[in-house]
């Protein structure tokens, strides 16, 4: 018998702090698998966010630089401009990417910054205890939208990925989901392509991953993954929004 699936080398052999059924841990693993497979450990640098994933450096066995809330893309820009031959990626949550860091994100994308952003959208602020995020669904109850998100009060779920897809500096923009093993495999493929796009110097690449937060959604992991597929994917359709390589093929 041969091993067909094992824990990636770049994922430190320690238990993580994420809640049971958290999407972060899946995405961490996918990234580490890719770092191993693509032999990137010696030239990859990760900028995790402020949020649950701030502790990513406890799990990633490659270089990691902390960021202030929302500043990931600016710090990544500094890294990339200083070391153009390195692979730089930000790992950001919905608050980090789409609320406090919207300006940094949009402008990095618009400059065609040759960096990659992994944007984990779970429609809620996890680390601070389940407050409303810009991506919170209409009607979704959070600790700061106890009556459910109302568009007339809190506005609409922000689709930052669609926004970024309109920018000429963005080369590869895609939304994926963790809802089942097939979609997780798609997510891995998307992240791989995003890194390849960066290495090709084509511009900004963004992978939005719809990810469950069972704890703050107050459901079981099983139910959370079902919700992901049944509700979130309706509001946030998965698929490739922009792919510069596809254009070239035509």
């Amino acid at each position: 018998m041969k091993i067909v699936y094992t824990r990636p080398k770049c994922l430190k052999p320690v238990p993580n702090h994420y809640c049971p059924g958290c999407g972060h841990s899946i995405i961490h693993r996918l990234i580490c698998e890719l770092v191993d497979e693509m032999n990137m450990r010696g030239r990859i640098i990760c900028i995790p966010p402020a949020g649950c994933a701030v502790l990513a450096y406890n799990y990633f066995d490659f270089d990691v630089c902390e960021s202030a809330h929302g500043r990931g893309c600016a710090i990544a820009t500094g890294f990339k401009r200083a070391q153009p031959d390195r692979i730089i990626f930000t790992y950001q949550g919905d608050g980090d990417m789409a609320a406090i860091g919207t300006a940094e994100t949009l402008h990095a994308a618009n400059r065609g910054e040759k960096i990659t952003s992994i944007f984990v959208n779970n429609a809620v602020y996890g680390m601070t205890g389940g407050q409303m995020a810009p991506t919170t669904m209409i009607g979704q109850k959070t600790t700061t939208s106890p009556y459910g998100r109302r568009t007339e009060v809190e506005g609409y779920p922000l689709k930052i990925t669609e926004l970024i897809a309109t920018l000429p500096g963005a080369a590869y923009v895609v939304r994926t989901s963790l809802a089942n093993p097939a979609k997780i495999r798609e997510t891995k493929k998307a992240i791989k392509k995003a890194f390849e796009v960066q290495m090709a110097g084509a511009g900004y690449s963004l992978v939005e991953v719809l990810s469950p937060c069972p704890t703050n959604w107050k459901v079981s992991p099983r139910e959370a993954f079902a919700y992901l597929e049944e509700k979130m994917e309706k509001e946030y359709p998965i698929g490739v929004m922009k792919d510069y390589t596809a254009k070239k093929d035509k």
């Binding site: 500043r71 600016a74 710090i75 990544a76 820009t77 500094g78 990339k80 200083a82």
Partner: peptide, 12 residues
Amino acid sequence: IASINMVLGAAA
């Protein structure tokens, strides 16, 4: 804000 964080990235 972005500028000082770019400085941070370059310094790191």
